[in-house]
Amino acid sequence: MKMISTLLITVLYTVFVQNLVMSAGLGMSEAIRLAAKPEKFRSLAVMITAFSVITGTICGGLSRIPAIATLPFAGRAAVYGGVLAAVYLIAALLLALLKPQDRRLRSTLGIAALNTLVYAVPFLNEFAAYSFAESLFSGLAAGAAFVLAAAVIGQGAKLLANNSNIPPIFRGSPALFLYVGLISLGFLGFSGTSLFQ
């Protein structure tokens, strides 16, 4: 029971309190670009979650090996980056073998794997000293955080694009930045941070 509550807290913390996209800007560029291509939403969300879980879990296992654990931070960053590149290349190979005609999925694969959100998950697991199960759930939660942020940004972008009351110089990226800023402020509310102390 205690384990389930710990895992649930890990997920809730990563999705809401410390939403990796809204609070740390991880994967923000991908979330915003996804707003322009809603037809890719489902496939990209699933792939980002899968890459976060796989990379986070493998790196979590590797970081327990003494030779890697004692490396300086830059060395561990190189190892995590190597793992991410290897996972991506294996996925690309599998996709090429299993679905050689699906060009759309292949073009999404690079964006889904090689982004700041997926690469940051092993570092977060390391700093939070997560166990194997917690690393697994933290990867899942990173994917959920991305889905939530991308969905909110996508809906807002659609409304802003059709709003003719926005002054001309604020149309486009300025309005979207201000909208994302206000959503980010909303997420800050979950963390209990005070702006006036």
Binding site: G25, I169, A175, F177, G181, L185, L188, T193, L195
Partner: peptide, 23 residues
């Protein structure tokens, strides 16, 4: 303005900078 050090403050600054560029 403590809020500017936080992520939402950066987005709002970026919004005004993007508007200035657009102008």
């Amino acid at each position: 303005l403590k809020g500017l050090s936080l992520p939402f403050g950066c987005f709002i600054l970026l919004g005004f900078l993007a508007a200035a560029l657009q102008a």
